[in-house]
Simulated assay, not measured.
Amino acid sequence: MVPTSEPRRRGAQSKADTAYAHIKEQIERGAFEPYQRVLAAPIAAELGVSGVPVREAIQRLAAEGLLQIVHNVGARVAVIDDHAYRAGMEALAVLDGTATSLAAGQLGAADIERAEEINGSILSMLDDFDPALFEELNAEFHEVLYSACPNERILELARSEWKKFSSIRGPGAAVDLDRARESAEEHGELLELIRGSAPGAQIEQSARRHVLKSLEARTGHRSRLL
C-alpha cells in the first residue's frame, strides 16, 4: 500500500493551530508591544516545531488584522490609527446594540444566568485587577448576550468586530480599574433590562452606550452616537 500524506497534513495543521493560538494569546496579553516584530524562528524554537506552521499562523493572524506584514521588515503587531479605531468602535457599538436587542427575546434563563456568572467573575477580579483577563471576560459576557441574534448577518458582523477589537491594539490606553468597575455595573443594568423584557430600543440604546463609553474612557473621544 502506498502511504498517503494525510497524517502529515493533519499534524502540520495541528502545529499551525498551536502556533496561531500561542501568538494570538501573546498579543492579547500584551506580551508583544505595539509594532513589535513577530519572528518565526524564536517562536518555532519555543514551541518545538519547524518554522512552517509558525509562518502559516502569522499569515492567518495578518489576515485577521492582528499582525501587519511590512516589506523588508516582516510581521509586526498591528496598531490602527486614531480615526480608524474610533470608527471601528462606533461600528461595534451599533452592531452590538442591534444584535443584543434582537437576541434579548431569544435568551433563556440559563443564558442570563451564564452572563451573570461571567459578570460576577469580573467583579471578583477587581481587587486583583488584570486588564487582559477583564477584556477576555468582557468579550465573553457580550458573546452570551448577542449570540442568540436571529439575524445571521448582523450576528456575523457583530462577532467579527468583537473579535477584532478584543485583540487589536488601538491608540487609547488599556482599560483601567475605574472603567472596568463601571463596565460591570453597566452589565448589571443591561441584564436587568433583558430580564425585565424591556423594549428592544431601550436594550439597544443601553448596549450601544456601554461600548461607546468604553471608547470615550480609552481615547477621550465622545461619540456623536452617545
Rank of each mutant, 00 (worst) to 15 (best):
D96S: 14
S160R: 14
S183N: 14
T100D: 02
Y35Q: 10
R169Y: 11
R76V: 04
I80A: 00
L61C: 12
Q59W: 11
Y85G: 09
G97E: 04
R224S: 15
G196P: 08
A62W: 11
L157C: 09
E33C: 04
I122Q: 07
L191R: 03
R153G: 10
E25R: 14
L107P: 05
A21D: 08
L190S: 04
A104W: 01
K163S: 04
R55F: 13
A41V: 15
G97M: 07
L212R: 02
V54W: 08
Y146D: 03
R208A: 13
R179S: 13
A104Q: 09
R169W: 07
W162C: 02
E189C: 05
G11A: 15
A31S: 13
L225I: 05
A91K: 00
D17Q: 13
K213P: 00
I118Q: 05
E6R: 13
G172D: 13
L92F: 00
I69F: 13
R222W: 06
I80Q: 10
A57K: 04
L126P: 01
V77F: 08
A12K: 14
E113Q: 08
A44Y: 08
A63L: 14
E117F: 04
I80S: 06
R60T: 13
G188P: 02
S197Q: 10
S5C: 10
E33L: 14
F134I: 05
P3Y: 12
G48C: 14
L137Q: 09
D128W: 03
V94F: 04
H142W: 09
A109T: 05
R169D: 04
V49F: 01
I168G: 03
T100R: 06
S101E: 12
H71L: 09
H83M: 07
S14L: 12
P42V: 13
L212I: 01
A75D: 05
A31R: 12
L67W: 02
S160F: 15
G220P: 03
D17E: 12
K163R: 11
L225C: 02
L212P: 01
P7C: 07
E216V: 10
G170R: 01
R209I: 03
A19W: 03
A16I: 06
G105P: 06
R208W: 06
V73D: 12
A87F: 13
E140R: 03
F134Y: 10
A45N: 15
L126R: 02
H187R: 02
H221C: 09
L67A: 04
E152R: 15
V94I: 11
I118S: 02
D17P: 01
S183I: 08
R209G: 12
E186H: 12
R37H: 12
R114F: 00
E161D: 07
S14D: 07
G220E: 08
R218V: 00
A103K: 03
M89K: 03
N151D: 15
I23P: 07
L133R: 09
S50W: 06
A207G: 10
Y85E: 08
T18A: 14
F32Q: 02
G74Y: 03
E135H: 01
S166I: 11
V70M: 03
L191T: 10
W162L: 07
H210Q: 05
A62C: 15
A31G: 01
H187D: 01
